[in-house]
Simulated assay, not measured.
Amino acid sequence: MSGVLRDRERRGITAAIAKPGAQPREAVPSAEPDERVRQLEARVAELEASERKLATERDILRKAAKYFAGETNW
């Protein structure tokens, strides 16, 4: 299952709601502030990991584009 689908499932968003332009349901806040802080810290960690992955992929694509642009002899 992809990260997007896992995240949608975690937040309780169905496929029908996940259509473009649809408003996602907000996660139900925990009654305990400490639990909410833990949830937010976990989400921040997920987003930071995703950002690192995307940055790595972007750098790889940038290097590949530069390499292949240099290989063209038309």
Rank of each mutant, 00 (worst) to 15 (best):
M1S: 09
M1Q: 07
M1F: 09
M1P: 09
S2L: 07
S2I: 04
G3D: 13
G3N: 11
G3R: 08
V4M: 12
V4C: 08
L5P: 02
L5M: 12
L5Y: 07
R6T: 13
R6N: 11
R6Q: 14
D7E: 14
R8T: 04
R8D: 10
R8E: 10
E9S: 10
E9K: 06
E9C: 08
E9M: 09
E9G: 09
E9H: 05
R10T: 14
R10W: 06
R11M: 12
R11K: 15
R11I: 06
G12D: 09
I13W: 04
T14S: 15
A15K: 06
A16E: 15
A16M: 08
I17V: 14
A18N: 04
A18Q: 02
A18F: 06
K19C: 11
K19L: 14
P20Q: 05
Q23K: 12
Q23M: 11
Q23H: 09
Q23E: 13
Q23A: 11
E26C: 05
V28Q: 05
V28D: 04
V28C: 01
V28K: 07
P29T: 01
P29C: 01
S30L: 08
A31S: 10
A31Y: 01
A31R: 07
A31I: 05
P33L: 09
P33G: 02
D34S: 10
D34C: 03
D34I: 02
V37R: 10
Q39V: 00
L40A: 08
E41C: 04
A42V: 01
R43C: 01
V44D: 01
V44Q: 03
V44Y: 02
A45H: 03
A45S: 05
A45P: 02
E46H: 05
E46F: 02
E46K: 04
L47M: 10
L47D: 02
L47S: 05
L47F: 03
E48Y: 00
E48V: 02
A49Q: 06
A49F: 01
A49C: 02
A49H: 02
A49K: 02
S50M: 03
S50W: 00
S50K: 01
S50P: 00
S50Y: 00
S50H: 03
E51G: 04
E51R: 10
E51A: 07
E51S: 05
R52T: 08
K53M: 12
K53W: 07
T56A: 13
E57K: 05
E57Q: 13
R58I: 10
D59M: 09
I60G: 10
I60K: 14
L61K: 12
L61W: 13
R62E: 15
R62G: 12
K63D: 15
K63A: 15
K63F: 13
K63V: 09
K63H: 12
A64L: 14
A65L: 15
A65C: 12
K66M: 14
K66F: 14
K66W: 14
K66V: 14
Y67C: 06
Y67R: 15
F68N: 13
F68Y: 15
A69P: 03
A69C: 11
G70F: 12
G70S: 15
G70I: 07
E71S: 13
E71T: 11
E71L: 15
T72S: 10
T72K: 11
T72C: 03
N73K: 08
W74K: 08
W74V: 08
W74R: 09
W74T: 06
